[in-house]
């Protein structure tokens, strides 16, 4: 059995007195996508920064592609690519120039680097914009170029830190398609996201991070099962909502709706509600995923973590 391509054990990190990671255990087998899910300040970006050798952990261990991130950062860097929340491309260069610069810095042979750059421009639908300055690019184009730059060296491990945050739905689904292609070619991916549907769509397994700790791990289906069964939700004319449990099969839903008709319930609308990862988060933490953690807990507060980072 292969050793995991990404593995952390009891990973800890604090900025000054602000603890951000309190003990993270993760394992991603080769060729799989792990979705790291959590609200702002849960420690997602810090985890990625430790794994991509940008941050030194305070305790625990982390290996990427079999190399320890603290002892062999050079070997780790050869195996990875990081696409962060901010597109890491030079605004004052063109798309093509960005790819050429990064190919040079990645020490690809000149001709091979150029060919690879042209290939990626085509694959990411940036051919027409290749000679325009990046500062004229849309948000979606920037992210695509950013990802293209990351793929120049054909990395075995990809870190995608909130790759679609701030993108419009169209650019988002374009980027998803590209990520799926990369995964289909065998890359191992750690994807952080606040969007539950994104983890649902892209990830083989999901780890839910809260207060710097993994509070649940499994496939999206397994996590949803923890929350409970699907149900038919009936919105009644008098404002009440009624829920009827179902296995979500066609005959069962038909039976429930037939029952509604015979009882002549004043139904305004209805839907089959399958538990989402939102429900999972709510069940696991007692609060919805899109609310920031309660203040008074500095570890969970993005602003506090940032400040502590600046001060350290």
């Amino acid at each position: 059995m292969d050793t995991p391509m990404i593995e952390t054990r009891a990973l800890r990190k604090a900025f000054g007195s602000t603890t951000v990671l309190t003990g993270v255990d993760l394992a991603v087998p080769r060729g799989q996508v792990l979705g790291l899910l959590g609200p702002n300040g849960a420690g997602k970006t810090t985890t990625v920064e430790v794994l991509s050798t940008l941050l030194r952990p305070d305790g625990g261990s982390a290996t990427v592609a079999g190399h320890d991130v603290v002892r062999e950062p050079g070997r780790v860097r050869e195996a990875i690519s990081l696409t962060g929340q901010y597109a890491a491309v030079d605004e004052l260069l063109t798309g093509r120039e960005n790819l050429r610069l990064m190919a040079r810095l990645a020490h690809l042979p000149r001709a091979a680097g150029r060919a690879r750059g042209e290939e990626l421009l085509g694959l990411f639908d940036l051919g027409d914009a290749a000679d325009r300055l990046v500062r004229t690019y849309s948000g979606g184009m920037r992210r695509r170029l950013d990802l293209a730059v990351g793929l120049l060296t054909r990395p075995a491990v990809l870190f995608l830190d909130e790759p679609t945050t701030g993108l419009d739905p169209r650019s988002r689904s374009d980027l998803w398609a590209v990520i799926r292609d990369v995964v289909a070619q065998g890359a191992t991916v750690l994807l952080t996201t606040q969007y539950l549907d994104e983890a649902d769509a892209l990830a083989d397994r999901v780890a839910v991070l809260d207060h710097g700790r993994v509070i649940a791990q499994g496939t999206a289906a397994e996590l949803k099962r923890q929350v409970g069964a699907a149900h038919v939700e009936l919105q009644l004319a008098d404002g009440r909502t009624e829920r009827v449990a179902t296995d979500a099969s066609v005959p069962d839903v038909r039976r429930i709706l037939a029952d509604v008709e015979t009882r002549r319930l004043p139904v305004e609308s209805w839907r089959v509600a399958v538990p989402t990862l939102d429900d999972v988060f709510l069940t696991l933490t007692g609060r919805p995923a899109d609310t920031a953690s309660p203040s008074g807990d500095p570890a969970a507060d993005d602003g506090a973590a940032l400040l502590a980072r600046e001060a350290s």
């Binding site: 810095l105 020490h107 690809l108 042979p109 091979a112 060296t153 990395p155 289909a184 065998g186 890359a187």
Partner: peptide
Amino acid sequence: TTALAPARATTRPPAGGWALQD
């Protein structure tokens, strides 16, 4: 398949290392 397959092409460093070229 060749487009995105993870297989890293490495180059031999020039004499004196990469610092000058970088």
